[in-house]
Design a protein around this nucleic acid. Structure first.
Lengths: 113, 113
DNA sequence: AAAAAGTACTTTGTGTTACAAAGCTAATTA
DNA sequence: TAATTAGCTTTGTAACACAAAGTACTTTTT
């Protein structure tokens, strides 16, 4: 009897952890982009593209999605006379990503015990 | 100069971690299914469906995909006179999932340092 | 005996996503 | 003047997720 109960709780836990995960960060690319931006504070289009081996269009659309969610900010400037687009994570984005990693971490720890 | 070099290495690392992640386990549902099966050894259709709040069709198609990849096995039986389908993770699945979690863990630790 | 419900799907349809490839704009360098 | 750079946008395709409905067979309920 207590066996059944504990199984039920364990299943519930998994469900909760899963629900805490942020859909916006599911994909490997998004995980990579956020990881880089959280650490680097600012990175431009070319550097991100190079770092994650993405096509122009693919990177642009991922960034657009993250921007629409308010997770990153775009700063356009000129370096010398060349256009340059810098991306930075917002406070909201930083918090959301932290929460996501924390949920992942909890899930992983749950698995290891 | 050494600053530039260390940045380059850091970017490379992220790229490597991301590449190690298994596409099959990207989605929250897949993560949940595998987590449950790794811990529970065997679970049936109804329990999985209940635990993760999935529709019949959605669960069936996820399980089919995981089975096709060789990550889970299906055991059909009768309990009393009712049909019952048990799912279990395979050795391959267990290893693949472990590797995935390990890569996630490495990525997270990288972020925290 | 007939109707309802359980078990585990399959089928169908829809909307979302990922992504590559090509096009585009405006400037810059060769 | 031609090619390149920078950063997109557009277009098209294939994959995916998912709900809802349909299916087949059985069992339970009435």
């Amino acid at each position: 009897m207590s066996f059944t109960v504990s199984l039920f709780i364990s299943n519930l836990n998994v469900h909760n952890f899963i629900d805490e995960l942020n859909k916006a960060f599911e994909s490997r690319v998004r995980l990579g982009l956020m990881s880089l931006l959280v650490v680097q504070d600012e990175m431009d289009f070319a550097r991100l593209k190079e770092a994650l081996q993405l096509s122009d269009g693919n990177l642009a659309s991922h960034m657009q999605a993250l921007e629409k969610l308010g997770y990153i900010e775009v700063h356009k400037q000129f370096i010398g006379r060349k256009p340059n687009t810098q991306y930075a994570v917002t406070e909201l984005g930083r918090n959301a990503f932290s929460a996501h990693l924390l949920s992942l971490e909890k899930l992983i720890k749950q698995m290891q015990s």
